[in-house]
Amino acid sequence: MRQHQIVLEIATRGTGFVEITRQVDGALAEAGIGQGLVTLFIQHTSASLTIQENADPDVMRDMTNALERLAPRDPSLYRHTTEGPDDMPAHIRSALTDVSLTIPVRDGRLALGTWQGVFVCEHRAQPHRRRVVVHVLGE
């Protein structure tokens, strides 16, 4: 059993989704593991990870709009407002999605479905640099 770990730095443009499937594929290729697991972990409380459709960009727009409805940027709704009106909603959105993902590796590739991609979900309004730890375990 071998392990490999790297940290990806992902630039975001503010609220929305950034597909990182290719970067994760690159980390997997670097690890040289044919069968196993990839675990992804984002080191932030106001951003998250998801696996979602990557074929139609309307899916990600609809996801952004749905999260806006679930956790609106209305400071009158929250106690924690010292970091701006988008911070507490970002924490809620992060809790509703995932901060870690585990994906099987089969024949040296992520075992994703045909239309699936891996995304960083940026929940803050301003651009950020987000860190995603990629841990590969297998043979």
Rank of each mutant, 00 (worst) to 15 (best):
G16E: 12
V18I: 13
E19H: 04
I20W: 00
I20N: 11
I20H: 06
T21L: 06
T21K: 03
T21Q: 07
R22F: 08
V24L: 04
V24A: 05
G26Q: 14
A27E: 05
A29G: 10
E30N: 08
E30W: 07
I33N: 09
I33C: 14
I33P: 09
G34H: 13
G34T: 12
G34E: 15
G34C: 09
G36N: 01
L37V: 05
V38M: 09
V38C: 00
F41S: 05
F41T: 03
Q43G: 06
Q43F: 02
Q43V: 04
H44P: 02
H44W: 03
S46W: 03
S46V: 12
A47V: 08
S48E: 07
S48F: 02
L49D: 02
T50W: 11
T50L: 15
T50A: 15
I51N: 08
Q52S: 15
E53P: 11
N54T: 01
A55Q: 07
D56K: 08
P57Y: 13
P57E: 13
M60Y: 06
M63D: 04
M63F: 15
T64I: 14
A66M: 14
R69Y: 02
L70V: 13
L70T: 06
L70W: 12
L70C: 08
P72K: 03
R73E: 01
R73A: 00
D74G: 10
R79C: 06
H80G: 10
T82F: 04
T82M: 07
T82G: 02
E83L: 15
G84E: 09
G84R: 13
D86C: 00
D87Q: 02
D87Y: 11
M88C: 15
P89W: 03
P89G: 07
A90M: 05
H91Y: 09
H91C: 06
I92G: 02
R93D: 06
A95W: 00
A95C: 09
T97A: 15
T97W: 08
T97Y: 07
D98Q: 14
D98F: 13
V99Y: 00
S100H: 11
L101S: 07
L101D: 06
T102Y: 02
D107G: 12
D107I: 05
D107K: 12
R109L: 06
L112T: 07
L112P: 10
G113T: 08
T114C: 03
T114P: 03
W115F: 14
Q116P: 10
G117P: 08
G117L: 11
F119C: 11
V120I: 05
C121S: 13
E122N: 10
H123S: 04
R124Y: 02
A125M: 09
P127H: 02
H128L: 14
H128N: 15
